[in-house]
Every structure is written in structure tokens, then in C-alpha cells.
Design a protein around this nucleic acid. Structure first.
Lengths: 162, 162
DNA sequence: CTCAAATGTTTTGTTTATCGAATATTTAGT
DNA sequence: ACTAAATATTCGATAAACAAAACATTTGAG
């Protein structure tokens, strides 16, 4: 088997795991996936303006506005008109918002960290070095065309009912 | 800096790249993200039943049905009632569906493969070994709790307008 | 200063996604 | 034959997503 295919299959697995974990947190926090991503972005960047937040989560401003509407209604975020520049609206996590984000997300980080710490020191370095290469290989920004990641079974299934 | 944090940041980057690449393909194919994911799953597993397909993309049957409705209307997939078991409906890509999936997705795989092939043989092995460890570290299935991946800046932003 | 352009956000309108529950049909077990 | 399980769709409701338009504010050119 091609080594590159092997790597792609593993990446696929990794993406799948991350995806499922996100869905699990989504359930446990009672937030939808987009809401969760927004909250996570806020956790790291708040206070931030609506426009910047939209860039952060890679969706349009209009969509962010509607997501914020719902998060605000839940009392998880606050909106505050800018003082110097009144066009801007500064988004922040409310106390409850911070509380919510302190729960599950921490647990998760701990999990990865715990397992990572179990590795030998040289293995840790190896993983980091490898991830750096993968990050580069997937970085479409520095490419002519912007290609995609389509991973999974290589074999075409035979036609007809299985 | 903690090595585990370094690894998490890199993973974050990797996820981001993959995400953006998927959005790019989404635009170029004129498919929405869920539709694209469904088509990709079909590409690898077709023919497949509605229920199995739902499992494959980790959404409910009801949702898959509605996505298939739209893909069918676009002439990209075909539905066929099972002969032996008439409860089942076999989904397949139409000729146009195959054509569409042959375009961008292939290019993408080529991209990663090209860069991967540029690596030294020992580096390729290292990347695979590292990905195996990461895949394991993220595998929540074999865990008590199901933790999550929340990566990004560690520092809390200072409060107040920036 | 004044008005046009630029910037930032929200609103509007439409399509899609998502889920749980209800429904219909078929198959399988006893 | 009857009932339970399996399979897919439909329905109802909410959320997400985007583009285009509307709105408010700021900046810049003269």
C-alpha cells in the first residue's frame, strides 16, 4: 500500500475523532455545533468585534449575528457598542458563558494532554515534528490551486447489492 | 511552552486547513458542505443503503433523506428500491455524480500525495507513526469520558476594548 | 465644513440542515 | 398468522447559511 494513502487514512480517522468529540461536547453543553465553535473562538479572543469574530470562525457576518442573537438570548454572551468607534460592537462572554466554557472543554484538553504526556520525550518531539510537516502539506494558502482533503477507502465498491 | 500545547496548536492548524479546503471544493462544485460530505462518502462506499450512509456521515437518517432529495434533484445520485429486501433503498452516484467527484477531489488527493512523496522515506515513516499515535490519543471510543479538542491561544485576552 | 466613500453591523428573504416523532412498509421470529 | 424489529420517508420546528439591502457611523477630499 502507498505510504501516502496510509497517511491519508490516518488523517481521516483523526478528523473523524475530532468531529465526534465536538459533537459530544455540543450535546453536553446544549449548544449547537456552530454555537460551540463561536463560543470557543470567543473563549480565546474575547473581547472581539462581530466582524473579526466572523473571520475567526470563517462564516459571514450575517450568520455570526444570528448565532450571537441566540447565544445572547441564552445569556452566554454580551454585546456592547464601541465607545471610540460606535460602528463596532464588542462581543464578550458573560459570566455564565465563561462558566460553561470552563467545564467540558477543559476536560477534553486534559485528555489529550494526559495521553501525550504518557509518551516518551523523543516520541513527543517526533509527533510535533510530524505534525509540522502535515500542517505544511495541508496548507493550501501557499499553493497555486486550493486542493482538498478527501480521505477514506481507496477501493471502489463493486456494483450491485452487497 | 508545553509540548502538548504545541501539538494542540498544530492540530488546530491542520483542522483549519482541512476545513478551508473543504469549503473551497464546496464552492467550486456548487455543493453545500453536507452535500459534499455525502457525495464523498458515496464515492467510497456506493452503492449503499440510506441508513448505512447516515452512519457513514454521522447524521440521522431523516437528514440524509433530505440531502439525498436535493442531490437527486440535481441528478447527482440515484435511488433504487432493493430487490431482495424491499425496505432498503440503494443509493448510487449517477454518471454526472461520478464526473463531478472525479474533478476537484482528485486534484486534492494529488496535492497531499505530491508533497508527501517529496519527503524522505524515513520522514514518511515518521509521519505515519506519529499520526498513529495522534489517532490513538484522540480516539474517545476507548475512553471513559468522551473529551474534546479545543485548541488555540492559551492566553486569556485582557478585558476592555483593544 | 460638507458630502461622498468606506467601514461595521444588522435586517430581510430564501434555501438548506438538523433532529425527533410519527408514519408506512417489509421482514423475521415464534 | 401475529407481533416485533428493521428501514425509509414525511412532518413540524428550529437553526444555520448566505447574498443583498438597509442602516449607522466614520473618514477623507475638496
Amino acid at each position: 500500500m502507498e505510504k501516502s494513502q496510509e497517511a491519508l487514512v490516518l488523517l481521516r480517522q483523526i478528523f473523524r475523532s475530532a468531529d465526534m468529540q465536538e459533537k459530544e461536547i455540543s450535546r453536553s453543553t446544549g449548544l449547537t455545533l456552530p454555537q460551540l465553535m463561536t463560543m470557543q473562538a470567543l473563549r480565546h479572543t474575547a473581547p472581539i468585534t462581530t466582524g473579526e469574530l466572523a473571520k475567526e470562525v470563517s462564516i459571514t457576518q450575517a450568520t455570526v449575528t444570528s448565532i450571537l442573537d441566540r447565544l445572547e438570548k441564552k445569556g452566554l454572551v454580551t454585546r456592547e457598542r464601541g465607545l471610540e468607534d460606535k460602528r463596532k460592537v464588542w462581543i464578550n462572554l458573560s459570566t455564565e458563558g465563561w462558566e460553561l466554557m470552563k467545564g467540558a472543554p477543559t476536560t477534553q484538553q486534559d485528555m489529550f494532554t494526559r495521553r501525550f504526556d504518557d509518551l516518551q520525550s523523543w516520541e513527543q518531539s517526533m509527533v510535533i515534528a510530524a505534525l509540522e510537516r502535515v500542517a505544511f502539506m495541508l496548507d493550501a494558502q501557499h499553493l497555486d490551486a486550493a486542493p482538498m482533503l478527501d480521505v477514506g477507502q481507496i477501493d471502489r465498491a463493486e456494483v450491485g447489492n452487497k
